[in-house]
Amino acid sequence: MLKKRVVPILLLKNGRLVKGVKFNHYRDVGDPIQSAAVYNSQTADELIILDINATQESYFDLLKILAELTKSCFMPLALGGGIRTFDQAAQLIHSGADKIVLNTICYQKPELVSELAKRFGSQAIVCNIDVRKHIASNNYILYSHSGKTHEKVSLAAHLKKMLDAGVGEFMVQSIDRDGTMLGFDQFLVDEVMSQVKTPLLIAGGSGNYQHLHQIFTQTNVSGVVCGSLFNFSDSSPIRARAYLLNYGLPFKLV
């Protein structure tokens, strides 16, 4: 049977690992290579590494870090942040990324998303969608450029467009919950899962193992993406899985 996933996320800024709150106020949380090595020894289910500088120069840092990571991390790696061209994505895949995470480009050049899916297969393309909840209308508003640019398209329309483009996995991130450690936005998962039948990762808000348990029992989400939980507490992927296994949830046997 297919297992659920607990996925640590590493945010890169100027070659260092950072973690923020609501996509702001970033704090240094260490060295990317060492952290990745720790997650590898804790047999994390997968790693997501995003470059939040998202510039041409920082893209080369991302490549360099990937080259180091693939020597010691024999686990699935998803990389992204600032990918704007076919060649940038291809280079990451050739250098050891199993999946590339696309966000801003999905709004600007959906045809590039299809081109990449066609070349590398849908399974290699993760569409990351960052949202804030608009309280008055109770709708989700989409943002690109690390939460800076408001996109006019609706969540439903964007999901549809990305499915048609050949995306193989979605990662939705609640900016409102990011770094708050108050728990995941379950309605966001429900909303996305009512529209797509592809794997879904939820990010933003994990603060303890109960939050993980809650989202896995209340929804059919494929995996949880955790930043603060592993950065700022003594939690680890091993202990998270052990906790969830006790509730009968399916996790990998190693």
Binding site: L2, K3, R5, D45, G168, K197, T198, P199, S222, G223
Partner: peptide, 11 residues
Amino acid sequence: HLLIPHTGWNS
């Protein structure tokens, strides 16, 4: 009923 692609750890 199943999510496609088949993504993740399986026995």
